[in-house]
Amino acid sequence: MTDLKEVAQLAGVSRATAARAFASPEVVRPATREQVFAAARELGFRPNRLGRQLRLQVTKLIGVVVPNLLNPVFAEQFQAMERAARLRGYNLLLATTDYSSERESAVVEELLRQRVDGLVLTVTDAESNRVLQSLDSEDTPFVLAYHQPRNPDYSAVSVDNRAGMALATRYLLEAGHWRIGMVAGPALQSDRARLRYAGYCDAMREAGLDSVPVIEMPAHTQADFAAIEPLLQGPQALSALVCSNDLLAISLIAELRRNGWQVPRQLSVIGFDGIALGTQMHPTLCSVVQPIEALACTVIDQLLAQIAGAPAVSHCLPCHIRPGESTQPYEETLDDPLA
């Protein structure tokens, strides 16, 4: 007896898309829907009966994919989304990818096998991602969290990463710093980090200053003093650093202090995310704050609207600087006897 999996394979779509074509045909693209129905006819499948059954089998589950939970920004996001989803009668299933595109494909497939109604995704690179291309072609509801994709068919909720890092760089420029560098993970590991580096370059160019090539660290959230040490010596030594995320900034401050450098007396440091942990350390972390609670609620509402048949839309939420003790004016750095 033919089953849904065989229909999906013949139609060249996922099982979840085939199921939606029968259960809620109005939310599936006409061309995709016709592929599924044609495959069903060829295999002698009975779509109407299956559709009635599937309408009674809504899982009320949302799949959530994040790089990891070691970075508190994703843990805070998940907790806020869980509260928002629960209020709307949904539960979340979580998977992590450790910034691996291969793992992204595997965990998304596994979540679809769990019959999730839709997906919230934070991926390595939203611009050239086969998983997203496949989900889009199959009409699987999904929303990207923290990304700013150029593809208008992708639904996303983010802050303006480029403008946010330009804001952080200008904050240092206004404090009198002009030798400023940016620290990020290996090869600007995420599309968000690349946009943030572009924002840093924008602000430096506006000030008539040369930007420094990105200072690459061994991991997205792990600093290495050896990578920064050469840039702290000589007449062109950096006086301030912007970091691609808060956890990297916290790790960098620890590495600097471990090697005898004072923050902010000798070097000012700014992070990006606004995680709560930054306010509980010493010195407190100056950071670009992403509105994580608002982002999480917007993501859930947007995904549920898509599940109900609404088109993909994107939102860009405002961010702001949270002042902290990890920065000080450049004049104070010059006057400090430890500098």
Rank of each mutant, 00 (worst) to 15 (best):
L277T: 09
C316L: 08
L285S: 03
S211C: 12
R265H: 15
H220E: 15
L285A: 00
L241Y: 08
A296I: 02
A219L: 06
D210W: 11
Q233D: 15
L277K: 10
V289I: 13
S268A: 14
A276G: 12
N259L: 12
R205T: 15
A237N: 14
P291A: 05
P218R: 04
L247Q: 14
I228P: 09
G260N: 12
V289R: 07
S287L: 09
P283W: 09
A207R: 09
Q290A: 09
E229G: 08
M217H: 02
G309Y: 00
A294F: 05
V313E: 01
I253G: 05
Q302L: 13
I292V: 14
S268M: 07
D273S: 14
A254R: 15
I270D: 05
D224P: 03
E255V: 00
A305E: 11
L231R: 15
P291T: 05
S314E: 02
A305K: 09
S211D: 14
L248I: 10
Q233N: 15
A294P: 00
P264I: 06
F225Y: 13
L238H: 12
G234Q: 15
E229A: 15
R205M: 00
E293H: 09
L241K: 05
L247K: 11
I215T: 13
A207P: 07
R257T: 12
V212M: 14
I300W: 01
D246N: 08
A223H: 10
A207D: 07
L285I: 00
G309A: 06
L238I: 08
H282D: 00
A294I: 04
S314A: 10
I228D: 12
G309I: 06
V214K: 12
V212H: 11
L303F: 02
L303G: 05
S314K: 02
V313L: 03
D301P: 01
V313R: 00
A312K: 04
A207L: 02
I300T: 03
L247E: 13
Q266M: 10
P230F: 12
C316A: 11
A227T: 11
T298H: 03
I300F: 01
T298Y: 00
E293D: 11
A310S: 10
D301C: 02
I253K: 06
S211M: 10
G309W: 03
G234R: 14
H282I: 08
C286F: 00
Q233Y: 10
P283M: 11
A227L: 09
S251D: 07
Q233W: 15
V263R: 04
P213C: 13
H220P: 11
M281L: 15
S268V: 04
A312W: 01
D273H: 11
G278Q: 00
S314F: 00
V288D: 01
T221Y: 14
M217R: 03
V263L: 10
C316M: 04
L238N: 06
E216L: 11
V269R: 00
L247M: 14
A240T: 05
E293G: 09
A226C: 08
V313Y: 03
W261H: 09
L295K: 01
Q266I: 05
C286R: 01
V269M: 02
S287M: 05
Q290Y: 01
V212Y: 12
M217T: 06
C316S: 12
D301K: 03
V214G: 13
